[in-house]
Design a protein around this nucleic acid. Sequence first.
RNA 1: GGACGAUUAGCUCAGCUGGUUAGAGCGCCACAUUGACAUUGUGGAGGUCGGUGGUUCGAGUCCACUAUCGUCCACCA
Length: 876
Amino acid sequence: MAMKEIPKAYTAKDHEDSLYKMWEESGAFAPSDDMSKEPYSIMMPPPNATGTLHLGHATMLAIEDILIRFKRMQGFAALYLPGTDHAAIATESVVIKKLQDGGMKNPREELGRDGLLDAIREFVENSKNTIRNQVRKMGTSCDWSRERYTFSDEMNVAVNELFKMMYEDGLIYRGGRIVSWDPKMQTTVADDELEYLEEKAPFYTFQYGPFQISTSRPETKFGDKYVVMHPDDKRYAKYKNGETFEAEWINGPVTATIIKDEAVDPEFGTGVMTITPWHDATDFEIAQRHKLDREQVIGLDGCLMEIAGEFAGMPIGKARPKIVEKLKEKGLLVNVDENYVHNVAVSYRGKGIMEPQIMKQWFVDVNKPAIDWKGKQLSIKEVLQDTVRSKMIKIVPDRFEKTYFHWIDNLRDWCISRQIWWGHRIPVWYKGDEMKVQADSPGTDWAQDEDTLDTWFSSQLWTFSTLGWPEKTPDLMRFTPSNCLETGYDILFFWVARMILGSTYALRKSGFSEEKSIPFKDVYLHGLIRDIHGKKMSKSRPETCIDPLDMIEKYGTDAIRLSLVIGSTAGNDMRLYEEKIAGYRNFVNKIWNGSRFVMMNLDGNDEIDPAALTRADKWILTRLNEIIKTVTDHLENYRLSEAGLTVYDFFWGEYCDWYLEISKVQKNPAVLKHVLKTTLTLMHPFMPFVTEAIWAELCPGTMLMTSNWPVINPDYAYFAESDEMGRIMDLIAGIRVLRAEAGVEAAKKIHAIIIAHEDTALVNDKADVIKRLANLGQLDIKENGEKIEKAFSTFVGDLEIYLPLADLIDFDAEIKRITKEITELENYFASLEKKLSNKAFVQNAPEEIIKKERTKMDETQQKMEKLKKQLLELGK
RNA sequence: GGACGAUUAGCUCAGCUGGUUAGAGCGCCACAUUGACAUUGUGGAGGUCGGUGGUUCGAGUCCACUAUCGUCCACCA
């Protein structure tokens, strides 16, 4: 038989590449052309076209691919659109560093704009290929024919179009604002691309006229001519707002003005500060409020300017101690706190220390009403809030909605211009004082804005520009909005919120309805992958890093996918270690061998004969129904881990350990095959390769990937699911109402009785419950009928009996004691039952022992019945 | 300063709207195994679910307070 050729252990390497090739060539990665099928789409968050795939990407791809394969099998026209991101600052700094490592001193100067762009382009093309192949390695079933790139010509058209629309709507404006300037990368950095590092720096206090002021940055203080204090600070009550005084300062005397502003914290330092509006965001705001002068002190190169007099041209780091020295000589240094700790802002990308500067930049206004939304003109901020608040967009897990709203509340205008070269260039042209906003040059003598756009400005268009916008292509009409955006929670603000912004604005403007203009319906946020100690994996500590590609090589893609998905929940970080992956590799192998065994026992007959089913067959078929239902339900609700675990447990613990064992004695090949096929289907989204490889043997000529997702077969409901618990729940619900209406004591007694009488017959027969209760007392239903009826209405239709409460009181303790005893017996009974339902025990244990256990069970049952009768007697 | 998350077996983690005796993997102990599988099977030990109080007939699950760890946001003159 052909089976003998199948190797004993599954070696992933021998199958994965050829299976992927088969899928790709079959065309099944593309969504079905059948327009009657409901569309389902996921836009892959594009990995940066700089490096290689890391575990974050692997997690993302695994989760998305599970969802898309599931939906595809369910019969949706499933689109999974892949792509890469040009990642402006990140890429440019990587390439510049490479060139510098290669000996080039200043690549920007030496290569010029076009030369550097060429170098970056070449680098990006190479790494794009690497990324593509790695995405394939993960088994990702995305439609490569629709691959997109955030810096393609088509994308550039979309970006320019959006810029123009927003400009014409007055949403984009140019203005002098304080921005974070990165002297290292020579560009601005957005607020949320900053991170703060703790730094210990000397904290100086200087005499400034009659005041003492403190600073850790004396080099900014040259132009300071305002002192600010809180209006309510009693210490300085004698000074009036606007009052001036003379003060000796670094380079001679200055005339200073007193300003009262609530931004000053009276508790901090001396409660008085001088301000440097050009180089501090808070100071800038104070200066705006009071219309104060602003002067630049530090140049864009990080060196002091003319205003610094003798210090001009010095880098700030060098100048600082010298300035302090001079002030000390002048007798103006009051004291130095050497243990002062404060935060410095650095770039999230390049780690350069920020220098706030006032610069002309392009901004997106987030407060101007400009979007026609549900009959009103709303601002970007308001639309961002409404989409989530009205549940048009659902965030999983929902606790991130709170974070999202908090972020929006604090949202300021978005600075979208960057002074780097790698990126979409701002489509604005200047000639003298004239300015035009358009993609192409208006003619000779016009010069284009030197700046490029923030990378997120193009990324925000990802969900719909990839489908052809601004053209109204069939894909755009069909697949927008996408169904799910899956990404890490760390870029909720960077990207997710911006996509909502871009999509709602652009698509509403293009005539789409509110429902069609959101970028996605669900947002699924996964956590970060950490090492076994819970630390972030970082390149600087390679021993903590797990490279997904190494793991694929060693354990196979299916094992990686499982280990990234099982045991992880939305929004929570997960630890990953090699042993875990090895564990799932074992499972993959188990599937292989279990299937091999099944195939050795098939007889070519696939028809299940209902008349020939053993108890075991019926059981496994019933269980299969339950598993289908559970797995489908979990997947629909993004509980991927639960779904995976369910099918894992079923296959290993029930199908292999139990049903296959029985099959060695008495087998039903048709059932064996049916259950295997169904289980393989359920497992396929999680572990596409091994399931497809087995399928090829099991059902030659067909492809599992395009098979139908299983549905429950009502014929296989041989064992009714126990709905007893459901009945009890109804009863309890009734008691809860009764408690509210008739009082706690009454409810407690009824509960005690029910516990005591909790046998199936009693719970099944509602009327019987009521009768028994009725025997216990003579509470008149005519008096309390309404309450009682309400209490039991969840499980009793008609109530025309008397309900007893009053006479129970004396038997309380006795009932309690017997109830407890019954509970103990029940526990014992259940443990016996468990033992007897253990297949291995039943199969292997000697007959006498099993008989003995059965006898014990019978005895226990009799005891329990006796006690229950007693309890009833007590009731009477 | 504000918010959020975590705390469950030796380790890493599940546990969906409160409900039969709280689960898995790894590790540990004992035994088994040349007929699918040592990447195995069977059995076992191991948990007062961080603490205190509350709601409830019933709490790992809900509420309040609290401890420890972690993350994010804001401020830091």
